[in-house]
């Protein structure tokens, strides 16, 4: 079944302006596991009757991994090209399920001429709930122990700790915090372009360390809000042979499941 997601170009052609642009990001577009997050979020948007569009084939990498690996040149090339597209469509508001895209679009694009209101999907979902446009059905996760792994670029990077937690409360589940949470959250190991290379020599992988921290609080579900954290935590749980007992989900997936979307 196709989700019938409209692109900006299609919207433009039919004279429509969406409320918000959904920035899908590279992981959300191409990574098999992350695509499920994209689909879950798009379904929630449709369910809440939010008028949204994507850029589709006009979207390109924000340049985050280029910038953080040290290739500022490529980052700015990407940024300027994306800004031309976004400004061409007069985009005002952007939502994304990737904290790396979120951080780059929100903080690093303005100086290059890209000024938008940028929201992480957990913030956007919380707003929908506050505005009464979305209700979360409790039940499915009642009594489940859910821990939240703070993505660095959402938490420390941009000070957003509460939006995802508020959503977990709404699920009627039990939020169990790791010792290293919020401002002291421990990285999953993917940031700073580490996702795209082997780690340097050490005595452990960062994602294993983080997974062990999560396992300490005996969760049924490890939740997060970043496609890269998703990869790292999923791999970590597998390495620990816990994938049958413990599931890793994005907050959007939890909400989609709760609402049976």
């Amino acid at each position: 079944m196709s989700l019938k997601v409209k692109t900006m170009a299609e919207m433009m052609a039919s004279g429509q302006t969406p409320e918000v642009l959904f920035w899908v990001g590279c992981a959300g577009s191409f990574d098999d596991r992350a695509k499920k997050i994209t689909i879950a979020f798009a379904k929630i948007l449709q369910h809440a009757q939010v008028s949204f569009a994507v850029l589709g084939s006009e979207e390109s990498c924000t340049g985050d991994p280029a910038k953080r690996s040290g290739n500022e040149f490529l980052f700015q090339m990407q940024a300027m090209q994306n800004i031309m597209v976004l400004n061409g469509y007069e985009v005002k508001k952007i939502v994304t399920a990737c904290p790396h895209c979120f951080n780059t679009l929100k903080n690093e694009y303005p100086a290059l001429g890209g000024n938008y209101l940028v929201l992480h999907h957990t913030e956007f979902l919380q707003q929908l709930i506050n505005e009464g446009r979305l209700t979360i059905k409790g039940g499915v996760f009642k009594g489940k122990r859910i821990t939240f792994h703070d993505p660095c670029y959402l938490g420390r990077g941009n000070g957003i700790y509460e939006a995802p937690r508020e959503l977990i409360y709404k699920l009627d589940s039990e939020l169990v915090e790791m010792t290293n949470c919020k401002a002291r959250g421990f990285c999953c190991g993917a940031g700073g372009a580490q996702m795209f290379k082997e780690a340097e020599k050490g005595n452990k992988e960062v994602n294993i360390e983080r997974t062990e921290q999560a396992l300490e609080v005996n969760p049924d579900i490890i939740s997060t809000g970043c496609p890269f954290c998703m990869t790292m935590m999923t791999d970590g749980v597998k390495m620990k042979n816990k994938e049958t007992q413990i599931k890793v989900y994005d907050i959007a997936e939890l909400i989609a499941q709760a609402n049976d979307l």
Binding site: L3, K4, F30, K35, T38, L55, S57
Partner: peptide, 9 residues
């Protein structure tokens, strides 16, 4: 192929 996901549902 960036919009492929919308058909894979």
């Amino acid at each position: 192929d960036r919009l492929r996901w919308s058909e894979e549902n």
